[in-house]
Design a protein around this nucleic acid. Sequence first.
DNA 1: AATCATTCCAACCGCAAGACG
DNA 2: TCGTCTTGCGGTTGGAATGAT
Length: 247
Amino acid sequence: MEGSFGVRKGAWTEEEDILLKQCIQKYGEGKWHLVPVSAGLNRCRKSCRLRWLNYLKPNIKRGNFAADEVDLMLRLHKLLGNRWSLIAGRLPGRTANDVKNYWNTHLLKKGSSHITKLKEKPQDMVKVNVIKPQPRTFSKNLTWLSGKPAIVGSFKKKEDIRDISQTPMQSESRINWWESLPNCGELDERATCTQCGRLNEVPRETFWAEGMVPEAKVVGDTLDEDVLNYWGDSSLDMDLWEVLKAE
DNA sequence: AATCATTCCAACCGCAAGACG
DNA sequence: TCGTCTTGCGGTTGGAATGAT
């Protein structure tokens, strides 16, 4: 199982997984070119990255896709095509590889009739409550309520402070989304990881999962350095909004 | 029980894009 | 501007597990 340069290939062993986990926990994600050496692994960096992203990373959801996940996948694929990473970004806990595999094995091969059938909403499915993503920026200022994050002055209905943990959502897919923040160590009130000091952006997909979309927190009346470019590819999100709104 | 077919998913490969000097 | 390096993505493959005969 060795490549042309003596780099190991194929299935990962438990020992390799442990070494990779320890390395990521110590140095964080990124800098994949340094990972094989740092971890003491005889693997190429791509293999390390893939193993982490698709298998070892915390919060990866295992098991079958729920009906609402499949439904959302279908609608997103209708909009985005085979842009698996974007689709996976809105399915919390699912990787692009998971989505791609599921699509190719369960949906694509079973033909359009199966897809049509899946598109019909089960009666017990909870409709996702999506708010139109008007603004394109999101403040890094988070306020913490009872150990849970809240967003200050950020929602369409003008609540000054909204406790996101109270957002109603599907019982099956309910997650404490703040627990899956990047570098999810203890977060201080500015959403900065107290372990590594890195600013934590709130992943946009958590809001889609919650059925909530944050509006901008504008500092003063202008967008200054205190405001993160949250929505990034805004045209994409507006397109997505149109699709979801049509449901 | 043995063999063959199918399913499923982890992993690999090649390419494109971005970062950087 | 160009070349190199690194990362991330989508397509594809390999093989273990499972099912059918």
